[in-house]
């Protein structure tokens, strides 16, 4: 099911996801990728195993005494009944993996796209401000303007594909770009390309018009 993915998350990102120290937008990227990629899910869960051992082996000085009555209070919590579990919405044919559907409020047809020029559309997802997440729709065959990157940017393909000077990215593939990468990705001709893009800094476009657009369109 998930064996076609060629561009994966790196260990540092997976360990940070397991440790819980990524900004929310990056957590969303990782959760979306793990929904599609069992290889990375297994790697992430092996870092969870390490977290479990850190917990298990806390030195006696770091283990904290509980408040008196702590156990009884916990039993009372349990007697109060479980918090209602979220109803499952299995949509095996959905374009958006479950964690993204939770942010969008549904699959693709629920996305509120805003045009950003040249037929490209985006939808910013509501995450914490330390990083941003957006869905991008790039019409088939369209080239994104030549651009560089500030900070770290990760882009995952959800539908269609794109190609840059070096590589080809299809559903589930993640491109990780840092400030060294300078490229002109082109959406595959066969289908509109839909991506999730997260960044901890704004993209920098090299041409005038996108630069102006960037300022008020929050690209």
């Amino acid at each position: 099911m998930t064996d076609n993915i060629k561009h994966h998350l790196n260990d540092a990102v997976l360990m940070a996801y397991s440790a819980g120290s990524l900004p929310e937008a990056f957590n969303l990227m990782v959760a979306a990728h793990l929904s599609l990629c069992d290889a990375c899910r297994a790697r992430a869960e092996s870092f969870d195993a390490l977290g479990g051992e850190v917990l298990e082996q806390l030195e006696s000085a770091a283990v904290a005494a509980l408040r008196p009555g702590s156990y009884e209070a916990t039993l009372a919590l349990i007697a109060g009944g479980p918090v209602a579990e979220k109803t499952r919405d299995d949509l095996p044919c959905a374009v958006l993996p479950k964690p993204l559907r939770d942010y969008v409020g549904g699959d693709l047809n629920a996305v509120r796209w805003k045009p950003v020029g040249m037929g490209v559309k985006q939808a910013i997802l509501p995450t914490s401000k330390d990083a941003s997440a957006r869905l991008l729709l790039i019409p088939a065959g369209t080239a994104m303007p030549d651009h560089g990157h500030h900070g770290t940017e990760m882009t995952m393909v959800l539908q269609g594909a794109f190609q840059d000077e070096d590589d080809y990215f299809a559903r589930g593939d993640v491109e990780i770009a840092d400030s060294d990468l300078h490229h002109t990705p082109v959406a595959d001709i066969h289908e509109d390309c839909i991506c999730l893009a997260v960044t901890d800094a704004p993209l920098q476009f090299d041409r005038l018009i996108p630069k102006i657009a960037q300022r008020f369109l929050r690209i």
């Binding site: 440790a19 120290s21 850190v54």
Partner: peptide, 18 residues
């Protein structure tokens, strides 16, 4: 490693080669 899991390291400081 403990610091990483206690959240004392930012994601860019985490070295995954354990």
């Amino acid at each position: 490693i403990e610091k990483a899991y206690f959240g004392d390291l930012t994601h860019s400081e985490i070295a995954a080669e354990t």
